[in-house]
Write a protein that binds this DNA or RNA. Structure first.
Length: 520
DNA sequence: GCTAGCTGATGCCCG
DNA sequence: AACGGGCATCAGCTAGCG
């Protein structure tokens, strides 16, 4: 209105922006990247996504849900729904100010919690604080390598051509409910193998890659030790952020070798590392079997197993120590095994898919088949209840559980959000349409809904939809409807469709089938 | 005209 | 723009059936 320039730059310049993309794991988001001279802009939404890629524990990524998850929401915090902000501003400005203030406080607390490791990374890698938050770990390792080669005035190699190579050893030996489960894993498997066998990039003529890995590992252990000794809470927090920044790097050194764009990538070396890993884990499985244990599930660097019989009774401390010492001393130099979990029972389903019951009664669920966001909330809850019953040996309660869910669907007892699936647009709508036109992509409900809505959607946006109709077999992309268009007074969710989804889960996870213990 | 069963693409998860 | 391995779902197709 008054043509006042937004001179936020420390040199008095105005903010500039350009379209950009950021990706964490399989999630890519389009956004407007802003730059303000002499300042750093970090979107806490991105930090929340980066956190969730490794933890996968958040229910949603908005500020409110994140604040609740990290336990930083004020207990008496003010909430104002988005569509009531203008009205509240006019009628009750005080409460709107409280709402905004609470938002700012939560954002600050999130930032304090999640951005600190990037603050330390910015001191270590040749990227700014702002840039560090939107760069992947392999890119940062590349930058560290390039910086040192430039400093020593050495020529840089070209990246090697990518080729597929084998990964970790994954297997499942028993399925169903199994009692008394122990877990062990190899501490830092790939970094340990790399250092023990000198497995680094062939193009690294200066030999700095493995030195860097070793220094980072030693530095991290030192930071962890200082953290343990520190009496001051804020110092402990800082040291924790510092050591976790190093942990991320250390674990990415192997990944860097298989990184197509990495100047020092080395697919032969990456393949040798995973091969050594597979051989080591196979030897561990053999040792466990030879010594009376029953391996149940294995994934890359960890094994779930039933310990030998003499470790099961009371007063088994001596047998336990004998077993563990024997296992440790059977391992090669430089390889340490950790016994880091004991569980009342395990429900072993398929590779990378299992559930655990802790001695505190907590149920831990792992794997896409059992906890994926691709499942609707009612499916996840149904599965969790089935799994808890089975882990606790209460199979007789399962038919009642199934009946309860069937009734709820038939009688339309739940809000439609329980039935809705939430999916992320991986591509922009234009990219989707281009792929469709090329014939390379089938129709997909989320994209069709986004297109039909006429609203602006970007890659990375999430949409929730449910399925309408009255037959169990429907083309989802034709019968789908956005949750935001749902009318509670004229319910149209497809009852037979959702009943059949429930029946599918029952067939797989219910009782009275072939889900008993099965030795392969 | 219908459906079971297969294939390939996609989405999400494990370590 | 870290890696490979894995499971479930859906669209789109084909074979087989009545």
């Amino acid at each position: 209105m008054h043509d006042v320039k937004l001179r936020l730059g420390r040199d008095g310049s105005v903010p500039r922006s350009r379209p950009s993309r950021v990706s964490y794991g399989e999630r890519t988001m389009s956004y407007e990247r802003w730059q303000i001279a002499g300042r750093h802009i970090v979107d806490t939404l991105f930090l929340v996504h980066a956190y969730d890629i490794s933890h996968r524990s958040l229910t949603g990524f908005g500020l409110k849900e994140a604040a609740v998850h990290f336990n930083i929401a004020a207990p008496d915090r003010t909430y104002v729904e988005g569509d009531r902000i203008t009205e509240t501003f006019h009628n009750d400005p005080e409460s709107l100010l409280r709402y905004v203030r609470d938002d700012v406080l939560e954002t600050g607390a999130l930032s304090e919690l999640l951005s600190k490791s990037h603050f330390f990374q910015a001191q270590m890698v040749p990227y700014s604080y702002q840039t560090s938050c939107v760069r992947g770990t392999a890119t940062k390792i590349d930058a560290l390598m390039i910086r040192e080669y430039c400093r020593q005035r050495k020529a840089l190699p070209k990246p090697g051509a990518p080729r597929p190579f084998e990964g970790g050893y994954t297997d499942v030996f028993e399925t169903g409910v199994i009692e008394n489960i122990h877990h062990c894993d190899v501490r830092s498997l790939y970094p340990s193998l790399m250092l023990a066998h000198g497995l680094g990039p062939a193009a690294d003529t200066l030999g700095i890659f493995l030195d860097m890995l070793k220094d980072l590992r030693d530095f991290r252990l030192e930071a962890k030790e200082r953290m343990r000794r520190s009496k001051d809470r804020s110092e402990r927090n800082d040291l924790d952020a510092l050591q976790s920044a190093f942990k991320i790097f250390i674990n990415s050194f192997y990944g860097y070798l298989g990184f197509a764009q990495g100047r020092f990538n080395d697919f032969e070396s990456a393949a040798r590392i995973t091969q050594q890993g597979r051989e080591l884990l196979q030897a561990m499985i053999d040792w466990l079997r030879k010594n009376g244990a029953r391996p149940v599930e294995i994934d890359t660097d960890g094994i779930y197993f039933v310990p030998p019989a003499d470790m099961l009774g009371e007063d088994n401390a001596a047998a336990r120590e004998r077993f563990r010492d024997g296992f440790r001393s059977a391992l090669p130099a430089g390889i340490e095994v950790e016994f880091d979990g004991e569980y009342r029972s395990m429900y072993s389903y398929k590779m990378k898919n299992y559930a655990l019951l802790t001695h505190d009664g907590e149920v831990i669920i792992k794997g896409g088949a059992l906890r994926s966001r691709g499942l609707a909330p009612f499916q996840r809850k149904f599965l969790k209840e089935i799994i808890r019953c089975r882990l606790e040996g209460r199979d007789e309660e399962l038919p009642e559980l199934k009946a309860r869910y069937e009734t709820a669907i038939r009688e339309r007892e739940w809000p439609v959000t329980e039935l809705a699936r939430t999916e992320r647009l991986q591509d922009s709508l234009a990219t989707y349409e281009a792929k469709r036109a090329r014939g390379g992509r089938a129709r997909s409900a989320v994209y069709e809904l986004a297109l039909a809505s006429g609203r602006e959607y970007r890659a990375g946006d999430q949409l929730s939809y449910y399925v309408t109709g009255n037959k169990k077999s429907v083309a989802v992309h034709e019968a789908a409807r956005l949750v935001s268009d749902w009318d509670a007074n004229a319910r149209d969710e497809n009852v037979p469709y959702y009943l059949s989804k429930l029946a599918d889960l029952w067939k797989k996870f219910g009782v009275g089938d072939n889900q008993g213990t099965l030795a392969l």
